[in-house]
Lab assay of single mutants.
Amino acid sequence: IRCIGVSNRDFVEGMSGGTWVDVVLEHGGCVTVMAQDKPTVDIELVTTTVSNMAEVRSYCYEASISDMASDSRCPTQGEAYLDKQSDTQYVCKRTLVDRGWGNGCGLFGKGSLVTCAKFTCSKKMTGKSIQPENLEYRIMLSVHGSQHSGMIVNDTGYETDENRAKVEVTPNSPRAEATLGGFGSLGLDCEPRTGLDFSDLYYLTMNNKHWLVHKEWFHDIPLPWHAGADTGTPHWNNKEALVEFKDAHAKRQTVVVLGSQEGAVHTALAGALEAEMDGAKGKLFSGHLKCRLKMDKLRLKGVSYSLCTAAFTFTKVPAETLHGTVTVEVQYAGTDGPCKIPVQMAVDMQTLTPVGRLITANPVITESTENSKMMLELDPPFGDSYIVIGVGDKKITHHWHRSGSTIGKAFEATVRGAKRMAVLGDTAWDFGSVGGVFNSLGKGIHQIFGAAFKSLFGGMSWFSQILIGTLLVWLGLNTKNGSISLTCLALGGVMIFLSTAVSA
């Protein structure tokens, strides 16, 4: 259960009878995928790494000078000259100064003066180019299975845990398959586009800190620079940016070097996208990844198990997540596992009318040892309800109150669905055939309105939902006002479609 501690969480529900669903994975976010007769899966884009970055340009932001020398000439005696002028490691300046009897010249006039100092770069920052084909995306998957609280967001041991898996995709191999043991396998067909235009970005490294910066900004930095990788004795261009020549006297000129420019660069980098280094690879934390999940090989585990009949206890007080759902960790005293956990939410304890829904599909106890633990997640209705676990006299209950409203949740879900469709863009549509167009249209309606429909009408039977949709269509056909007619027709059509397409 990876997503319960992530604030940016998206719930995606598969269409009834569908074998695939489109998701948008982004750094700092987590996606929970639910479908009829399929286990619930949490998917998170953990890291995006980039390798084989080529150094484009380096800037010196802290330097020192040494070996200063000057040469001067009297008027009419030609130009002052130093051998160091031809050495690229030196920074030199030529000027004219007033000369006369007082400073060793027989004539009054302008004399030539040249001053040089050896330039040494102490600290530099480097910009590297990123090729999209060198990106690698690491995705962690977790099935809502027989897990306890100690396994949440624990990325170790996934090789031997059938509840978890790690997959890596690249532009050259965008397809992967996550093996989930008894739950089958989940196929991923990803489109490795981060949403960032790397043709316009460089990877900047300064003092063990890293950013993504725009090329134009990078090339306009007014500091000494050299092109390409460091060859040991780089040729620094624009050395004068960190060196200041003071007022010249008759035979000498003082040279000083400016202080470190790291603070000024940090100020200019305010708002830039931060990154990290992992050995020789860069780690990015921006952008998104679009994936199509193929769920035809994914299956529920323990459908044929019998119900657990022994007593359950709450190991922890049920807690609310950031998303309005409830996490419950229970301990089973029996030894008759594997068995299914009898769990439901009810409005009252007399009729036990089921409300809400299970995020953890078909929760089971897989071990036959005593005191096995299991964590599950529920989506309670707004208002008061009861969490009921167990059967008969051994069942345990917990009162729950959820604040908020169904309308607010439906609106929030619609906005999130619209954002998801905007990110998917043209990849969500198939114009290759008439059937493809209608299929894409259905998927689009489901992406945007599916979660809201589930919130508003999830407790009704599909037949009642179709009746309401048919009534809206009838009202649309018999209303003389054009805008009201079109609105009723659209709402009725969407409702009829979703009542037959969205899983219960």
Score class of each variant (00 low, 15 high):
K419P: 08
I221V: 14
S7P: 14
L471H: 10
A229Q: 13
D37M: 14
M140S: 10
T353W: 00
G492M: 10
K110V: 04
E329F: 09
M206H: 05
V326T: 04
N103T: 04
G127H: 03
F245W: 09
H210M: 10
K110G: 04
A319P: 05
S461N: 15
G404M: 09
D161N: 14
N237L: 01
V91D: 05
C308D: 07
N237R: 14
H446N: 11
N134W: 11
R73D: 09
V213C: 08
G334T: 06
Y137A: 02
C121Q: 05
Q77L: 01
G482R: 12
E274I: 06
T19E: 07
G78D: 09
D71V: 08
K395E: 08
I387Q: 05
V213T: 05
K38N: 04
S51F: 08
H249I: 07
E320T: 13
V355H: 07
Q36C: 11
I65K: 07
G78P: 00
A250F: 08
C30Q: 08
S112F: 07
H249A: 08
A270M: 13
D87W: 08
G259Q: 09
K84S: 12
E133V: 06
A270L: 13
S372I: 03
A264W: 13
I468P: 10
Q36E: 14
E244P: 00
P75I: 05
R175Q: 10
D296H: 14
K251G: 00
A422I: 15
G324K: 09
A490D: 00
I389M: 12
F411H: 07
D379L: 00
G14Q: 08
A504G: 12
I365Y: 03
T19Q: 06
N172E: 02
A280N: 14
C488L: 15
G145M: 12
F411R: 05
N362P: 04
I152R: 06
D278F: 14
I387H: 03
S122R: 12
L441A: 03
F449V: 10
Q465K: 14
V391M: 14
S129R: 02
T397G: 11
P318F: 09
E177R: 04
Y137H: 12
G425F: 10
S16Q: 03
Y158P: 05
Y61H: 11
G14S: 09
C74H: 06
L135Q: 06
E159V: 01
I1P: 00
A428T: 09
C30A: 02
H266K: 13
K395T: 09
G184D: 06
E26P: 01
A54S: 01
R175H: 10
A248T: 09
F218E: 08
L376I: 06
S173H: 05
A69N: 05
A229L: 14
V423D: 02
N52T: 01
G482N: 13
L196I: 15
F431H: 03
H214G: 03
E44M: 12
E44N: 03
N478V: 00
H288K: 05
N163F: 08
A264P: 04
S464D: 07
P222G: 05
K373D: 01
V213R: 02
P192D: 05
S499G: 03
Q261N: 10
C116P: 06
G436Q: 01
S368C: 14
V153K: 05
I130S: 08
T487K: 13
E191I: 12
L472Q: 03
L471T: 13
H446V: 12
G111R: 08
G476M: 11
M53E: 03
R94V: 12
K340D: 07
I4G: 07
M460K: 06
S503L: 01
G259M: 09
V473C: 12
T479A: 14
E55A: 13
V355S: 15
H214L: 06
G287M: 02
K239P: 10
L284P: 09
C488F: 12
D426Q: 13
S385K: 10
G111P: 01
T115M: 11
S306W: 00
L45W: 09
G195Q: 06
G271I: 10
L135R: 04
A422S: 01
T366G: 00
E13G: 12
V328Q: 04
A270T: 14
T335D: 13
D220T: 04
G435H: 10
I221S: 02
Y202E: 07
Y81R: 05
F463H: 08
E55M: 08
T397S: 15
S405E: 03
S7C: 02
L135A: 02
I1L: 01
M374D: 02
A117V: 15
A319S: 15
L352Y: 14
H235G: 14
G228E: 13
G18S: 00
S146W: 07
K454M: 13
L293A: 02
S86K: 04
S199F: 14
L491A: 13
A410T: 10
L456N: 07
L141G: 03
G337N: 12
A227I: 03
H27E: 05
N478R: 07
A310Q: 11
L242C: 07
N362G: 06
L467N: 03
S72F: 06
Q77C: 06
C74E: 09
N237W: 15
T40G: 03
I43D: 05
F463C: 12
S72E: 05
C3A: 02
L201N: 03
H219V: 11
L180M: 13
E276I: 10
G263A: 07
L269E: 08
M68N: 00
L475N: 09
G157M: 05
L491S: 10
H266Y: 12
I448S: 08
A248C: 04
L322S: 01
V114G: 03
R193L: 01
Y81P: 02
E191K: 12
A178D: 05
A54G: 03
H446P: 10
P224G: 05
F463M: 12
R164G: 08
S372W: 05
D10P: 00
G408L: 05
S173I: 04
G263W: 12
D348M: 06
G111E: 10
F108T: 02
T369F: 09
A250S: 12
G5M: 10
A250C: 08
V391W: 14
N237I: 11
G356D: 05
A80F: 11
A413I: 01
K128E: 13
S64C: 03
C105Q: 06
K251E: 15
L186V: 04
